[in-house]
Structures are given as structure tokens and as C-alpha cells.
């Protein structure tokens, strides 16, 4: 079965910092299909010698419609990201999808903790919107870590969300001079492992490298249900 392909035009570019930006895309062939918060699209990167496929998570909510937003940063030797960084307003790019298993389909029915770092906020941002879409009594936490304040994207948006939703707690965490996941693990252990015996919580973790897996192991090892620990390692 041939998978449908789509073409989108770059409608707007947002520079978050010198090495981090967002592309706002609008489909020009076909319509963006159904997707869930957390999903990504597979962008076709036409390098001179080959066509590569690279995933980029949709940072906007399905409810927002188009244009939809992809966020990324330049990474050393990352040819896909370099190609994306060269895109200009009006450029076209081809993709398939959306895809992905790290998703939040519906508002959770119990306390939920979201944890992300840097650009890995992309799937968490629409998940938070979905999580807060229904009135409920349980808490929703978001710990957002970065090495520098300017690496915390959409900070004002999350702060505003916390003002309008009394059950949402936004907790930015700037980690300087210490390994980021060490700090996150300490924080998670203090509050949700040693802090109480409650184990009926959901966690959504997204970040770069093996630190995400260490957080997963910490929580599962502490007695949380395997399927309550949702994660995506970039």
C-alpha cells in the first residue's frame, strides 16, 4: 500500500535563537490528515547524493489547523537539520505522515507529569493543550529543563497557561554546571519516588539521549506501571 505524500509551503519562519527555529507550513497538495498531539511528520531531505527521511514533531495542536509548526535546531553533522535551516519562506517540502506512538489522544484522568528539555518540548506542547482541554480536578505538571533561559521555548505561553489553569503547574528548570538529566532525575526522585507512596500517575518524557531512558528506569523501578511511563528518546 503506497503511503500518501504531501507537499507543504513554508509560510513563516520564527527564529528562537541563532541555532533554533520554527517553520510554519501549509499543505499545498492534499490536506493535512488526522493526527494526535505528539506525532511527527517524515520530511524528505533531498541531499545531493541521496534522499533522506527525517522526522520532525508537530509543535502545534491538531485543533489549530494550518499552518502547522515544526521546531528544530542545528546539530553537529546533522545534514537534515542543516537542510531544514536553509529553507526560506515560499520553499516547498515533501513529507509523509503524521506518524508516531508517543501521543496523548485524550485528557488524562489522573495526575500527569510532563518532562521535556529544549526543542523536545515540541510533542509536549500540543499534549499539554489536550491534557488541559477538559475540566478535571487532578494536577498537571510540566517540568521544562534547559541549560540557559533562552533555551526554554514558549515560556510565556506556558506561564500564561498556568495562570488560567489552576491545576497546571509550569516549572522551568535551568541547569547550569551540572548534567541536565542528573538534575531532572534528582527532582523526579525527590518528588515522585521518595516524596510519597502514590504510584497512580502518568509521565510523559521527551528529550535527547540516554537520560530519557534513565528517567524511565527510575520511575518503573520505583513501582510505576510500565504503561504509565510514556517516553520518546531523540
Amino acid at each position: 500500500m503506497e503511503r500518501p505524500a504531501y507537499r507543504a509551503r513554508v509560510e513563516r519562519i520564527l527564529e528562537h535563537s541563532a541555532d533554533t527555529r520554527s517553520l510554519f507550513l501549509r499543505t499545498v497538495t492534499g490536506r493535512m490528515p488526522f493526527y494526535s498531539p505528539g506525532m511527527f511528520i517524515s520530511v524528505k531531505i533531498p541531499l545531493p547524493e541521496e534522499l533522506r527521511i527525517r522526522p520532525y514533531t508537530i509543535a502545534t495542536s491538531p485543533e489549530d489547523g494550518e499552518p502547522f509548526e515544526l521546531i528544530f535546531n542545528l546539530v553537529p553533522n546533522g545534514r537534515g537539520a542543516a537542510w531544514m535551516f536553509e529553507r526560506k519562506v515560499g520553499d516547498l517540502l515533501d513529507f509523509t505522515g503524521p506518524f508516531g506512538a508517543f501521543t496523548l489522544e485524550r485528557a488524562p484522568d489522573r495526575e500527569t507529569v510532563f518532562i521535556a528539555e529544549g526543542t523536545a518540548v515540541a510533542p509536549i506542547r500540543p499534549m499539554l493543550r489536550r491534557a488541559l482541554s477538559q475540566p478535571c480536578s487532578h494536577s498537571v505538571h510540566f517540568i521544562y529543563a534547559a541549560a540557559k533561559p533562552e533555551r526554554l521555548l514558549y515560556r510565556a505561553e506556558f506561564e500564561s497557561l498556568a495562570v488560567t489553569n489552576s491545576r497546571f503547574r509550569f516549572e522551568p528548570l535551568i541547569v547550569q554546571g551540572k548534567e541536565l538529566y542528573e538534575s531532572l532525575s534528582d527532582e523526579v526522585a525527590r518528588r515522585w519516588v521518595h516524596g510519597d507512596g502514590e504510584r497512580r500517575r502518568d509521565f510523559f518524557l521527551c528529550g535527547i539521549g540516554s537520560g530519557v531512558l534513565k528517567l524511565r528506569d527510575l520511575l518503573r523501578g520505583a513501582g510505576y506501571e510500565r504503561r504509565a511511563i510514556h517516553y520518546e528518546r531523540w
Binding site: 517524515s42 527525517r54 522526522p55 528518546r233 531523540w234
Partner: peptide, 13 residues
């Protein structure tokens, strides 16, 4: 062989 996530263990394609 399809690999929507680029072979990063982030999908099941």
C-alpha cells in the same frame, strides 16, 4: 523498508 522516524525507534513502520 519503511522507516518513518529515520530508524530512531520512534515508530513501528
Amino acid at each position: 523498508l519503511e522507516h518513518a522516524c529515520g530508524g530512531n525507534c520512534a515508530c513501528t513502520t
